[in-house]
Every structure is written in structure tokens, then in C-alpha cells.
Design a protein around this nucleic acid. Sequence first.
DNA 1: TTAGTATATAATAATTTGCTTATATACTTC
DNA 2: GAAGTATATAAGCAAATTATTATATACTAA
Lengths: 115, 115
Amino acid sequence: MAAISKVDLEKAATILKLLGDKTRLTMIKILDSHDCCVCEFVAMFNASQPAISQHIRKLKDSGLVGETRRGQWIIYSLNKESEYYPFVCSLLEHLPNQDFKLQQLEKQGLRISCD
Amino acid sequence: MAAISKVDLEKAATILKLLGDKTRLTMIKILDSHDCCVCEFVAMFNASQPAISQHIRKLKDSGLVGETRRGQWIIYSLNKESEYYPFVCSLLEHLPNQDFKLQQLEKQGLRISCD
DNA sequence: TTAGTATATAATAATTTGCTTATATACTTC
DNA sequence: GAAGTATATAAGCAAATTATTATATACTAA
């Protein structure tokens, strides 16, 4: 039986606040299974590019999300090495799968990242 | 193997936002093992009574917390019947036990509820 | 019934958040 | 190197959040 990772209460509150936004929570849920770039999120959420960039920045600042440049695109991924990943994971387990959003993108020919 | 309860993404974000506050998160962690009244929280957090009441109201409005009057006091407890309790529980598991806060209260003779 | 304790609520002020608009940077392709 | 695409960032603003102050309600005890 693996021990449950403990998270400092103050840090936990910070993470929950970060994820207490529908857009960011959905992003993290999607990133848990697929890497994505900004323009994919923009298409998925019907949001402006700066709005998405700003959400991503918060996720990056927390260390939950990492980035890699691939040519023109910057591919974002969940940082599974984060000390808080197990905590986040146990939230994500309760959320419904969001793969349909990526499938919609594919249908529209807007899927970029390949993972 | 019990299935993991699924929570609508929008509702999940609302709950995470609610718990994304150090005071409310600590309250919920404490209420998971002990009932408490407002004046106990006031003493524990060194916060004003209206500030605590307003935090509690939000928790009540979400359905996560219930109340019972006991004479002069209103005793708050975690609503384990809430549809979102399993979700909240899997967060709380990652938080360090806060019993020391109640023990401090007892030492100061400020513990009210008996559970 | 009056005083005291516990709690809620309303009004307001301070802070934070998340968006928009405008612009800058980085890469690709011609 | 010029044009196009992807992304970041800064400034400004509106909405949401949280605390404070002041007051009201509910119960207890004298």
C-alpha cells in the first residue's frame, strides 16, 4: 500500500485556487493525457489567445506544467515530476474524460501536437 | 474495487475555488474529523467573527457543511452525504492532520463542541 | 426583563482576478 | 529579409473576492 503524498496546507490551497477555474482545470485534465499547444487550447475553449496564454503562465509558474518548443509551436505538458503531481492526480481522477475536445479539434483539422 | 466518483467539471472547479483558500481549506480538514462552532474557528485562526461567519456561509451554500444548533452555539459539521464528499475526501487525504489546532484550543480552555 | 454571549448579515472598502487591446518576440517559409 | 504564424507580455479595466465596521437576531442566565 503506497503512502498518500502529503502537501503543506498553504501550498495545497494555492494549487486548489489555481485549479478552481474551469478553463485551467480543463486544461490540466487534458494535459494529463495529451500534450497541447496554445493554439489548440484557443480553438477548444473559444477564448482569446492572450487569455489562454495567461492561464498557461499561471500553470507554468506553479510548476505543474512544463513547455518544450517544437518549431513554431510551444508544446505544453503536465510535469509529472512535480512534488504536487500526486495531489493533482487524485483530483483529476474524479473528472470526466475530456478527449472529445481533442477529437473535435481533429475533425476540424486543428490538432497540432502528436502524442 | 470501488469506482471513483465522477464530478462535473464545472462543479469541480467551483468546489476547488471554494477550497482554494487557506482558511476554508483548514476548516474543512478540521471538520472532517471534528465538529466545530464559529467561536472555535475564530480562536483558531485569529480572525474576526464576521470573516469566519462569511467563510462558513460559503461552505454551507455549497452543501459541503451542515449546521445544528446546540443551545447558544451553532455546531458545524462536514456533510458526508454530499454528492461531492468523496471528491473532497480525496483532497483532504493529502493534507496534514490539523488536530494540533484543537489541542491548542483545549489547552486554552476554548473548546466548545464535544465530538 | 436586562445583560451577556454567539452568530449572521449588510454596507463598504481594499485587493485580486481575468479579460481586452495593443504590441513585442520567435520561428518558418517564400 | 519580408510576410505570416505562434506565442508572450504589458497596460487598463470591470467583475469578483475578502476583509472591516456596524448592526441585528437568537439564545442563556441573572
